[in-house]
Design a protein around this nucleic acid. Structure first.
Ligand code: NAD
Ligand code: NAD
Lengths: 209, 209
DNA sequence: GTCAGATTGTGAATTATTGCACATAAAAGG
DNA sequence: CCTTTTATGTGCAATAATTCACAATCTGAC
């Protein structure tokens, strides 16, 4: 099947999901995994796993399965997460700090290279991870100087749109937004919203069924 | 259409999404909203909004639109988020604390009534929100005594499965899991996983296209 | 070298979701 | 009170996603 067929968004989402089980299998020194095993680990259908992967080419061997190591590499290639991505973050309260201090992002190639806040109390402080807090007035310049590609927003909701606008003006094309508002964005730009309340709402709904 | 047709999961997800724009319209003293306006605010199709809502009954008025206030109430009723839900949380590092201190959950009826950690240094500490950190050994008892209905997991990944097992033993039916592992769960139980890396992976993929 | 067993890759069938398009109904204006 | 405007609710067609089912193909045993 390979390239140039339109790949469903849902497939991309699942392919990313396959990474963690594969990492786990690597740790356990499992050389090979079947679609059935991988499917079970991710709670999806085995045919789904095979179809998802076949969008990108035939990585498996019939009668055998998939090489764990190779598949991991291939998926990272597919997702373009086989390289470093440079992140900026604005809003250094609890949430922003939790993200900054979290070590797993770096393990996956997501590296915070600048941290911004508008609070003069915070600006200039040196963070344990080796960054100095920058004022929001410097976003535009530093996005360019440091080649920031993904902008994270963890400000209060009231400031989120302004920050997004600054990011966009600075040329950022992708935003990970933790504030509970729907950002207005230029056509070309990507936004992923994170809102735990939606997860809780979903649980509440199902619990009440 | 009303009840007893099988309601798509995607509909539930979107209906929850409609809440924030509606809250915003309330703040702006907007009495009425059209499916077109609401759709635009959520970046979905207007027909989709109408269909989603019509699963649960005809809340709108033809030629007019939807009463913002009433729709808000109705949606909360649908999602069962028109009442208080009692949460427990295990794992009080950065992420757990950010969640605990976050005020918006309470605004939506999600209330942390107990916080657990295995670290003896933390157990017994009084948190600013008025809870005392409990040892994990007390989870089972407190889930029952305090009527905890949703269990949040923000422990390190290595402990997450154990904690989930304890939650389940204690009779919890729904879990919000922030640790990057796929939990093994009894049939009857619900899990929502939160993993920002998936969001970043998705952005990376699209940026690379 | 052949056969049994395993498991992929994929066309076709099934199931689910989305969006159009229009009949329907309320409101406002004349 | 009739006409125009507006915007909902929904049947239906189109599109999309999932799952089945099986031919294809590899491995290993004998
Ligand atoms: N913090 C995040 O942004 C984030 C994001 C996604 C998932 N998670 C998950 O949520 C759970 C809780 O995350 P968290 O951020 O609260 O905790 P964490 O595991 O990221 O670490 C919390 C704090 O403890 C420190 N720490 C990390 N490992 C340590 C160790 N071995 N010994 C001593 N100190 C250590 C870190 O520097 C950090 O300050 C984990 O399962 C994590 O994978 C967290
Ligand atoms: N923290 C979370 O768990 C969480 C969850 C979902 C979304 N978010 C969003 O992420 C963004 C950042 O969240 P956050 O938790 O870092 O910040 P926050 O807005 O939740 O508050 C951070 C800290 O500041 C304190 N605070 C809150 N409002 C304040 C005020 N008006 N004046 C002084 N102090 C105040 C809080 O007690 C908390 O300790 C926000 O947009 C928030 O809605 C956060």
């Amino acid at each position: 099947m390979s390239s140039e067929t339109k790949i469903p968004d849902a497939t991309i989402e699942r392919v990313a999901l396959y990474l963690r089980p594969l990492e786990k299998l690597m740790e356990k020194r499992n050389q090979v995994v079947s679609s059935e095993k991988l499917a079970e680990m991710c709670k999806v259908n085995p045919a789904q796993v095979r179809k998802d992967l076949s969008f990108f080419g035939g990585f498996g061997v019939r009668g055998v399965g998939y090489e764990v190591h190779d598949l991991l590499i291939e998926i990272k290639k597919i997702l373009a997460s086989d390289r470093e991505w440079r992140l900026g973050i604005v809003g250094l309260d609890d949430m922003g700090m939790a993200l900054l201090y979290h070590k797993n992002f770096l393990k996956r190639g997501y590296k915070f290279v600048a941290a911004f806040d508008s609070d003069p109390q915070k600006v200039g402080k040196k963070l344990p991870i080796g960054l100095v807090v920058q004022p929001v007035t410097k976003i535009k310049q530093l996005v360019k100087d440091l080649d920031i590609e993904i902008g994270v927003i963890t400000t209060s909701p009231s400031r989120a749109q302004d920050i997004a606008d600054i990011y966009f003006e600075a040329g950022i094309l992708a935003i990970l937004n933790f504030s509970p508002i729907q950002l207005r964005t230029p056509e070309c730009c990507l936004v992923q919203n994170v809102d735990f309340t939606l997860n809780l709402d979903h649980l509440a709904y199902k619990l009440s069924q």
